[in-house]
């Protein structure tokens, strides 16, 4: 191949790294010296954390006091207990039940989520590249249409799609592939929109150079678009991950007994009469853990920045 473009990011910003580091450090100092900024940041961080902390503390309130007492009252009495977490994970519906532990649903959530993130991200990136860099008739119209589809309420699309995926047609409803396909479709508008906006900001000289060298669209996509849009892909991936992870509706409709994710038993957890409502905070807290792990894992992509993207205004 005659492509001369370097394959990865660093070379795109050939400015010397060392000087950048130095100036960054200098600037950091300047930022930190503004006490107002620091104070404001701390206040925002506190305000944003309080509800989560309150959730955690409420998760520690034993069932017998859940309805009547606030967590700080229970805390002062020294009555807080971690046993709710144990109930949720291993006993699922409180005592005297053989209902399965949530662990199976955690696993299902993973099996549902990972492909449902990969598929739309890959397909979305392909389309985003086409809309951003390949001029063709109707390009604008199609893009605007996809953009506008973001507002189509999901509920309206459920039954028509189920008919297509159902036993009379494709026959994957009630199984993992059915859930993956449904999630992929519903993720498409946002995926194309977000990725398009980042892909479009890749400096045009890079792509033009590739074209001049005779690179085809396929080659450009693999050699330039994929490496340069990794940060954008990472951001989309995390949001799609959160969306799928917290989804109940799509999984309930397109999934079945063997595929139900974590959200499903959690919604049943309170019990028919709300008798296990005290377990909901602990279950909700547990369901937050894996998304946060994923966030930490992908965070370095955010920190690395969106490279050339976003800078050309």
């Amino acid at each position: 191949m005659s492509i001369t473009m370097p394959p990865a990011g660093p070379a795109v910003t050939p400015d010397a790294e060392p000087t950048r580091k130095k100036t960054r450090a200098a600037q950091a100092k300047e930022n930190l010296t503004s006490p107002w900024a620091t104070a404001a940041a701390i206040i925002i961080a506190l305000l944003w954390t309080i509800p989560t902390v309150a959730l955690f503390m409420t998760a520690l309130v034993p069932g017998s006091r859940y309805r009547t007492d606030a967590w700080w009252t229970v805390l002062l009495d020294g009555d807080l207990t971690f046993s709710n977490f144990g109930y949720v994970l291993f006993r699922s519906f409180g005592d005297n039940s053989t209902a399965p532990p949530l662990l199976g649903n955690v696993m299902n959530s993973i099996v549902v989520t990972v492909p449902a993130v990969v598929f739309p991200v890959v397909l979305g990136l392909m389309a985003a590249y086409a809309f951003a860099w390949i001029p063709f008739k109707g390009s604008n119209f199609l893009f605007v249409m996809i953009f506008a589809l973001q507002v189509v309420p999901l509920q309206l699309a459920l039954i028509p799609l189920l008919r297509i995926l159902g036993p009379e047609n494709v026959g994957v409803a009630g199984q993992f592939p059915g859930v993956w396909i449904a999630h992929t479709i519903f993720a498409m508008p946002l995926a194309v929109f977000l990725l398009h906006n980042f892909v479009a900001q890749i400096p045009s000289d890079i792509l033009e150079a590739a074209r001049v060298d005779g690179a085809s669209h396929t080659q450009t996509f693999f050699r330039i678009i994929i490496p340069l849009s990794l940060p954008a892909v990472a951001s989309l991936a995390i949001f799609q991950f959160l969306w799928v992870w917290n989804d109940l509706l799509v999984s309930a409709v397109f999934g079945g007994n063997k595929t139900y994710p974590l959200t499903y038993p959690i919604s049943n957890l309170a019990g028919a009469y709300g008798e296990f409502a005290y377990l909901v905070p602990s279950a909700a807290f547990i369901s937050m853990i894996i998304p946060l792990i994923v966030f930490f894992a992908l965070q370095r992509y955010f920190v690395r920045g969106l490279l050339a993207g976003s800078t050309k205004g």
Partner: peptide, 10 residues
């Protein structure tokens, strides 16, 4: 991550 945390909740 403190400010991001609420995103992890449905």
């Amino acid at each position: 991550s403190l400010v991001f945390m609420p995103m992890a909740i449905s």
